[in-house]
Simulated scan of single mutants.
Amino acid sequence: MPVIELDNVSRAFTVSTRTGFRRTRREVRAVDGLSFTVEPGEVVGYIGPNGAGKSTTIKMLTGILVPTRGSIRVAGVDPSRNRTRLARRIGVVFGQRTTLWWDLPLKDSFAVLQKMYDVPPARHAENLATFVDLLDLGDLLDVPVRQLSLGQRMRGDIAAALLHDPEIVYLDEPTIGLDIVSKARLREFLGQVNRDRGTTVILTTHDLDDIEALSTRVMVIDHGHQVYDGTLPGLRASQNAPRTLVVDLATTQPPIQVEGAEVTKTEGPRQWLTFPATTSAAPLVAQIAANYPLTDLTVQEPTIESIIAKLYSTTPAHQ
């Protein structure tokens, strides 16, 4: 049985505007006719630009907002009618809004959550020891939350969201503010939680590396409509988004000429060449190395923003 079910869900808001002495109202649909299911243990990347309806969807899934139309079931219940019951079965990290107590040391926030969720003390201690180790929180337990950096606080929020063994976790930009090493550690941690505990994860992020490292499935929404549901390679293939070869030459040269790629930008000895996503970079690198004074190069995958932008440009709402 799916752990999350949405059937033709819409959420509308009334927006008021004033022109002179006249006030007008109009309806804006943040989510419009959304339907999908999520199976237990799936890791779903839920992506789209700001204003696409991601946060509205998550708020309906947690029971914070009630759908204007359609039905939602999470872990077998209607979220808006069973918020307290559902709260024990889900974990949530809402981006920049912390669930920790601002003036308390981090360990005290964890202790309060143990009481709130009525987690058996032995299980709470086991989970806390595991998460403190995996998220490198040991030196932060006695620090008030207000003194933590954004990255440190985010790690604390993620631990807090998982301490009560939720079946489903909603994560909004979980790697924001983290350095490269911390991002890698957090992704490894979330992957391990999913594998070892079968936790279902709904991940909203603009970081393509998060999606690639964690998600088995990607859903893209645009103005409240679902425009893609499948794998990340399938998303790339559907839009044929080009990759970029960044080439550093020993000296400034005219634009590189190789079969299968096109120079789109030059800056001194550095040149940027785009080539189709379905093409291997190896033959291009071989041609360049054989004919130009190559010193270094990197291959850049298309950004999530460019893929989504191209996807949106082909949808009827944007034509």
Rank of each mutant, 00 (worst) to 15 (best):
E188S: 14
A261Y: 00
R69Q: 15
L186N: 07
F94M: 14
R69A: 14
L214R: 03
R85S: 09
V246F: 06
A75Y: 08
T278F: 00
D133C: 01
M1H: 12
D133A: 14
T205Y: 05
Q253T: 14
T17Q: 15
I158G: 09
N127K: 08
D157F: 01
G260C: 02
L294G: 11
N194H: 10
M116P: 00
V44T: 09
S109A: 01
P79W: 07
P269Q: 05
P2E: 12
S16Q: 12
W272R: 11
G33S: 09
D229E: 15
N194M: 06
Q114A: 07
E27G: 06
R146S: 10
G177V: 08
F94N: 07
T19Y: 12
R217C: 04
R146F: 04
L141M: 14
N82C: 11
L150E: 11
T199G: 07
S35I: 06
G48M: 08
R195M: 08
G95N: 12
G260N: 01
T98I: 04
R197V: 03
M60Q: 11
E173L: 13
T99Y: 11
G48E: 05
A250K: 14
A281C: 00
L61M: 11
L134E: 15
V28K: 03
Y117D: 04
G156N: 05
W102D: 12
P233K: 10
L141C: 04
T251Y: 10
P255H: 05
L311W: 05
E301Q: 15
Q287N: 09
D157C: 13
Q96A: 11
P120C: 02
T130Q: 13
M60V: 06
Q152T: 08
S80N: 07
L148W: 02
D209K: 01
R236K: 14
T24L: 08
K265C: 00
K54V: 07
H206S: 09
V28S: 04
A281Y: 02
L284C: 04
P293W: 02
D32I: 06
H318K: 14
P233F: 11
S238E: 13
L104H: 05
V227L: 04
Y312S: 11
A160T: 02
D118H: 08
A125V: 01
R83C: 07
W272M: 07
E5L: 12
F110G: 00
Q147E: 13
L163S: 05
L137I: 09
V299F: 05
D32R: 06
A309M: 14
S313N: 08
G95M: 07
V258T: 03
